Amino acid sequence: MITVLSNSTISATIKHLGAELISLKNTFNKEYIWEGNPFFWGKHSPVLFPIVGALQNDTYSYKDKEYSLSRHGFARDMEFKLVSSSSESAIFSIESNLKTLEVYPFQFEFQIIYTLTASKIKIAYKVINRNDSELFFSVGAHPAIALSENFENYAIAFEKPEILNHYLLENNLISNKTKQIDVTTNPLDLNYELFKNDALIFKQLASKSITILEDERPYVKVIYNDFPSLGIWTVHKAPFICIEPWLGYADTINNSGQLDKKEGIIKLNSRATFLAQFSIEIL
């Protein structure tokens, strides 16, 4: 099933499986979300919950019990319920069940809220703790922006001056090693060589927005005030770039394996609610 939102400027299509944004178009029918061709990558804009990235050996422990959880968690593979909708907004929800409790021992509700405003789509993540104790989670976005021209025709402009030190991955885990991108000017010109070792992972950036430039002209802006970490990723020769706001990230190589001590994890108090949002703006 799908839900379509539209206003006078843009339209969005959300697939109920994973509550995934699969299309974002302007009034000229230009597509801004990657088509999901599995030859390169068969997703469009999956949500990452209740973890971001990989766990060491795909396992973690909580209260002396070990659990198995695959990369990026289970929400992207679950059918979401449409709670409410209008022409310009929709709320999708999943709740804990017997299957999720086998791999994630928390009672929760997780909502994804889409809202269109002018040429911008706002995407909010709401986590509701149904437990009488703390809940631990990470959440992140993985939108792939479609690029219709040669990859080298695009650049990324950071909101603020940055020293672009990114963390290197070792077996899908975050190592202690960093690498500085040799760039003397903002924006950063895109090329596939930047991603030869997988994603660029920034635990912290001064910038809270990134603008993708096409032939030096503003193309798409991603605004992520509520998210401290960011991933940027593509596949060799693929016509897309992922700008990924994160709250949390993959295990570090020296991680203890305990969920409540995981670097970047969010602790949500009993019966509390957490909300964070980002937006994608067509320019």
Rank of each mutant, 00 (worst) to 15 (best):
S68A: 11
L247S: 12
A124C: 11
V235Y: 01
F110N: 03
K15M: 07
Q258I: 15
I174N: 02
N176K: 11
I123N: 02
T234S: 14
S89M: 04
V139Q: 01
V222P: 07
N57P: 06
S96H: 15
S138V: 03
F195N: 02
I128V: 12
F136K: 03
T3W: 03
K177R: 13
E263T: 14
A118V: 11
S23R: 03
E281L: 08
K208P: 02
S279N: 03
E244L: 11
P143S: 06
K126G: 06
R217N: 10
S45F: 05
L101E: 15
D77R: 14
A199K: 08
K177Y: 13
F202T: 01
N57V: 04
K179D: 12
A238C: 03
A124V: 10
R271W: 07
D226A: 11
P38T: 09
T178N: 12
I113A: 01
K120M: 10
E159H: 04
N165V: 00
I212T: 07
P245L: 09
K25D: 08
F39L: 14
I243C: 08
E31R: 11
F106Q: 03
Y114I: 02
G140K: 00
S86K: 12
I145K: 02
I2V: 09
S256T: 15
F49H: 04
G18M: 06
L101W: 06
K30W: 06
S175Q: 03
P50M: 12
I282C: 01
K177T: 13
I94Q: 04
K25Q: 14
G73D: 07
A155I: 08
K160H: 12
E281Q: 15
L164F: 01
H44W: 08
F39D: 15
E79R: 10
S270T: 11
Y192S: 05
I113Y: 03
H166C: 09
L230G: 04
I121K: 05
I181C: 02
K122D: 14
G264R: 06
D58W: 00
F40W: 13
H142E: 00
A157G: 00
S6Y: 12
F202A: 00
I2S: 15
E20N: 07
A155C: 05
G42C: 12
